[in-house]
Design a binder for these strands. Structure first.
Lengths: 207, 207
DNA sequence: TATAATATTGACCGAATCGGTTAACTGTGT
DNA sequence: ACACAGTTAACCGATTCGGTCAATATTATA
């Protein structure tokens, strides 16, 4: 059995624990400043097990990069509906997907964020590859075929969009640090914001 | 000349460079994961100089904690005007102060954020002290004597407040990581958001 | 229950890095 | 020529690094 297969043959629960420990550690401290011991401790196993499952620290990191890419791609490809043109409903849909991804791996976006600004030479090149692959992915989903005509005339949809992106970013930065954050509550709150904005930014005939 | 005096007698420019290097390093990686070499490199000086100026790593960290506390307190005490009761204008005022602080030390909020979740025993106690001192500071400024009556009846000012706090947090998390971010632009954008919300959330007679 | 196979770890390796020190080197004014 | 403050490269012992491995638990098979 090859090294990675040993990991893959673990129970889903155990795999998730290890992956989340690694995502959260790397996401918080970056590649270089994260030690394999950190991850092992966070996962509640011994350092030797990590090397048993992945061989090297770098292999683990690359594995996580690919995994995140796949999880996101699959989430959006399977659940995103481009026939929804309403601005807010599309954002709501994208957020639903994002949150359901976070439900499985709460630290995934903190990890992805840290990837963008990773400077260590050992993994820099590999990151560039995967980043190029997902380029324009988010923005395409956001704006392609989206209907901004329902807004009141003096409101710039792009400004609203930027606001919601920042809002989501604020949530991530808040939730990735705090320990006992409630994803369900977060989801509910975000939907309240969307309702609030929709109610006040759309022309009355569209409400 | 005592150790700290040596640092204080430096030119304002040099002091700022060193402080910002330390704030940014500690803010990014926390106390334990930040080495004195990291800070020295970021500041463009040798590691020995840091020890020459501050004696120990912990002394430097504590110095930064106090400094941040003082900078924020002074900023708000000198510039905050509690006679401004309008919800958005007060938020605008608080944001003006925050940004002017960030103009001098861009990484200050990233450092303060990281302080909240610092777990290292060597500095944990000292953090608790300063944190207790500033408790309720932000929330008092935010809500005391603030007028929420101008909002449309179906809008909860607290929800808007939370939204703007998250928005600001999103900005911090975005700006503290990116290298070439433009504070002036950030400021302008934030004001646009406030205008946008005010225009659409207030009853018409208050516009 | 005895044994073979597997899962897991504590202890260990050389190398790197840690916080901190110091002797020597710079430049500048006299 | 000298003194002197500012600065650093080289160094210190201690710790931690990524990674290995022999030994111990655990489980499966008989």
């Amino acid at each position: 059995m090859s090294i990675l297969e040993k990991f893959l043959s673990l129970s889903e629960e155990k795999k998730t624990i290890i992956i989340d420990a690694a995502l959260s550690s790397f996401g918080t401290n970056g590649y270089k400043k994260t030690s394999v011991s950190d991850i092992a401790t966070a996962a509640g196993i011994s350092k030797a097990m990590i090397f048993h499952y992945f061989g090297t620290k770098k292999t683990l990191y690359i594995y996580l990069i690919d995994l995140c890419g796949n999880i996101l791609m699959n989430g959006f490809n399977e659940n995103f509906d481009t026939s929804v043109t309403d601005f807010f409903e599309r954002i709501r849909l994208a957020t639903d997907i994002k949150i359901s991804v976070m439900k499985k791996h709460p630290s995934i976006f903190s990890f992805l964020n840290s990837m963008y600004l990773e400077s260590d030479d050992e993994v820099k090149a590999d990151i560039k590859d995967i980043l190029a692959k997902g380029e324009g992915f988010r923005s395409k989903i956001a704006f392609d075929g989206m209907d901004g005509s329902k807004f009141k005339d003096d409101i710039d949809p792009k400004l609203v969009m930027k606001m919601l992106v920042l809002l989501a970013e604020g949530y991530v930065s808040q939730s990735s640090s705090k320990v006992g954050f409630d994803l369900e509550l977060l989801h509910k709150e975000f939907n309240e914001y969307i309702d609030l904005l929709k109610r006040n930014f759309y022309k009355e005939e569209y409400l």
